[in-house]
Structures are given as structure tokens and as C-alpha cells.
């Protein structure tokens, strides 16, 4: 059942690839940047502040096109934990897409990737938490930035309401 917490969301996806392959895609800065759409200036090590710029992904041309207007936009993540082959986490500023805003003094959210064995591959769990501390003004920007797409998206509350009534 969907839990309507404000602070945290969680996603699960089954990946039909070897654990070592997935681990590399997550923790090698170049590989991570390739699918995510970023170019990093350093390696991912625990505690490291890694800067980079948005660099359109080639994995999905359509997404790459959507990222294009933001190309070169500086970005920063702070690596939190790296537990080999199992857990990778970092912090960032969600929706930090306005070049004129200094986000550095604002709270961050924590993103955590966890790998678990599954019958047909690896079950990857991703969580992002800390939204409660993000200023409302930023959330409003998130609305605006996603205006076109949101109508199609999963209707969490409606689903929940349907499931309890």
C-alpha cells in the first residue's frame, strides 16, 4: 500500500544484468554520468564532493533532447556511503535547475541505491529522502518544470483512495 509520507520515496526495479555490471554503472562516475546525463570532474569516493555539468544522455535520445537546454549547467553531489556491490548513496539538491540560484546553502536530499539478489537478476531499490526540509519555493519550481508531463503520471493518492474504499 502506498504510504503517503512527505519525506521519502522509494522505487524498485528488476535489472537483468550481473551485480558487478550494475555496481559499475552506479559507482563509476563516467558510467553513472552516461545514463544519468552528467559529466563529473572526479571519482566517487565516500565523503567526496564531486562537481560536474549536465551533459545530455545518449541512452535515451528523447531524454537527451530534453536535457539539452540544461547542457553545461553545473551540478554537485556529495558521496555518502559506498559498501561494495551492495549500497551506494549520495546527497544532492533536487531540481537544482535554475542557473541564477545558489543552492549550496539549502538542504539536500539523500539518494540511496541498494542491490539485492532476485530470481531473475538484481533487484535495485532506490530511495530519496529529506524532501520535508526542501523549501516550498523549490517544490513550486519542480511543478513548473514538469508541467507538461505530470498529467500522465501515476496518481498516487487516487490509487490509495481507490485501494481503501
Amino acid at each position: 500500500m502506498a504510504v503517503l509520507t512527505t519525506d521519502r520515496l522509494e522505487k524498485k526495479i528488476l535489472l537483468k544484468a550481473p551485480r558487478a555490471r550494475i555496481w559499475r554503472a552506479l559507482t563509476d562516475a563516467n558510467e553513472f554520468g552516461t545514463w544519468f546525463g552528467m559529466k563529473f570532474n572526479g571519482r566517487f569516493t565516500p565523503g567526496a564532493q564531486v562537481t560536474g555539468v549536465i551533459s545530455p544522455t545518449t541512452v535515451d535520445p528523447e531524454v537527451g533532447k530534453a536535457q539539452k537546454p540544461h547542457e553545461g549547467m553545473p551540478f554537485e553531489i556529495t558521496i555518502d556511503r559506498i559498501e561494495p556491490q551492495r549500497l551506494f548513496s549520495f546527497r544532492w539538491h533536487p531540481f537544482a535547475i535554475d542557473r541564477n540560484v545558489d543552492y549550496s546553502t539549502e538542504p539536500t536530499t539523500l539518494i540511496e541505491f541498494t542491490l539485492d539478489d532476485a530470481p531473475e537478476g538484481i533487484l535495485l531499490t532506490v530511495s530519496e529522502s529529506g524532501f520535508d526540509r526542501i523549501p516550498l519555493a523549490r517544490r513550486v519550481q519542480a511543478f513548473a518544470a514538469n508541467e507538461q508531463g505530470w498529467a500522465m503520471m501515476v496518481k498516487v493518492i487516487e490509487k490509495y483512495i481507490a485501494s481503501v474504499s
Binding site: 500522465m152 503520471m153 498516487v156 493518492i157
Partner: peptide, 9 residues
């Protein structure tokens, strides 16, 4: 609803 939808999507 929108905020959750956006992040989730």
C-alpha cells in the same frame, strides 16, 4: 498529488 507524481515519475 503533483509533487509526488513528479519526483516519482
Amino acid at each position: 498529488r503533483r509533487y509526488l507524481q513528479i519526483i516519482s515519475a
